[in-house]
């Protein structure tokens, strides 16, 4: 996925492409298959058919051998929902980042320290936290550390699986800002998996709506939100609490939609 050259990422019926520095939101309710798509992309699950390509190279196969693993790690990384669970509780901030860095290149001593500091800066993690352990960090700091760790291999694509769902709104806003900076400065493409349309609107250029494993609508975020074509997208948008939101109306729509689904 060299600069300017669009990369194609596809998985069976789900297909989308993502240019460097671009951000795609993958939205849907629980069980819609959005997390499965994310896990297939990073190789945690193997698709039955189809392909994932980054910079024209096939990525779907769980490649063996140290070189293959390293190569994939340098292309695609992931940030998880649970910031505490996704960190090794025995490792301090510097150990966590140091190990991730050393997996990619044989850095040592001062060089390694500098790289660690740089990573911490890029996610705005205060230097005084260098020797803190995950249980001593706040939720927001943990998630910053998880993002920094993912950046250690300088990936081209970062998959964020509900990465801000467990955070408070103010912390969430800071993390989204950090992600936007990373995207602008490093040209990393983001794949944002979330159930929260408002969050996706904040960080994504494009959006794909999934329903029961099928991608039902995709396009530019503002187009899809303002002019949704599919009934489910309409239902989803009207379900989000906000001005003029009426739960009774949503319930009626849901009934109507389910009825239509069962007829088909």
């Amino acid at each position: 996925m060299g600069k300017g050259r669009p990369a194609v990422v596809a998985a069976n019926k789900v297909s989308f492409d993502l240019a460097p520095g671009e951000s795609l939101g993958l939205v849907g309710e629980s069980g819609s298959g959005k997390t499965t798509v994310a896990r297939m992309l990073v190789g945690l699950e193997t698709p039955d058919s189809g392909s994932v390509e980054i910079a024209g190279r096939d990525r779907a196969l769980n490649r063996r051998g140290a070189a293959g693993r390293k190569e994939r790690a340098a292309e695609i990384q992931m940030v998880f929902q649970d910031p505490y669970g996704s960190l090794d509780r025995r490792l301090s901030v510097s150990q966590c980042l140091g190990q991730a860095l050393k997996l990619q290149s044989p850095l040592r001593g001062d060089e390694l320290q500098r790289a660690i500091t740089e990573l911490m800066n890029s996610v705005r993690l205060e230097p005084r936290l260098l020797s803190s352990f995950p249980h001593q960090l706040s939720g927001g700091q943990r998630q910053r550390l998880a993002i920094a760790r993912a950046l250690a291999s300088s990936p081209k694509l970062l998959v964020l699986d509900e990465a801000v769902s467990a955070l408070d709104v103010s912390v969430q806003a800071q993390i989204l800002q950090v992600l936007n900076e990373i995207r602008a400065e490093r040209g990393i493409a983001l794949l944002f998996v979330s159930h929260d349309l408002a969050v996706i609107q904040e960080v994504s250029d494009k959006v794909m709506v999934m329903y029961r494993g099928d991608p039902i609508e995709q396009g530019i975020v503002s187009d899809v939100l303002q002019n949704p074509q599919h009934d489910y997208t309409k239902l989803l948008i009207s379900s989000v609490p906000g001005l003029g939101w009426d739960p009774d109306e949503v319930m009626a729509r849901r009934r109507e939609f389910d009825l239509l689904q069962s007829v088909r």
Partner: peptide
Amino acid sequence: PYIDAYRIQGVSAPMICLRYLIPN
């Protein structure tokens, strides 16, 4: 999920087990 995170970082399965899983 930290185990998944190690896998995505490219750490081999025996290494994850010996260096991270068993100590934890």
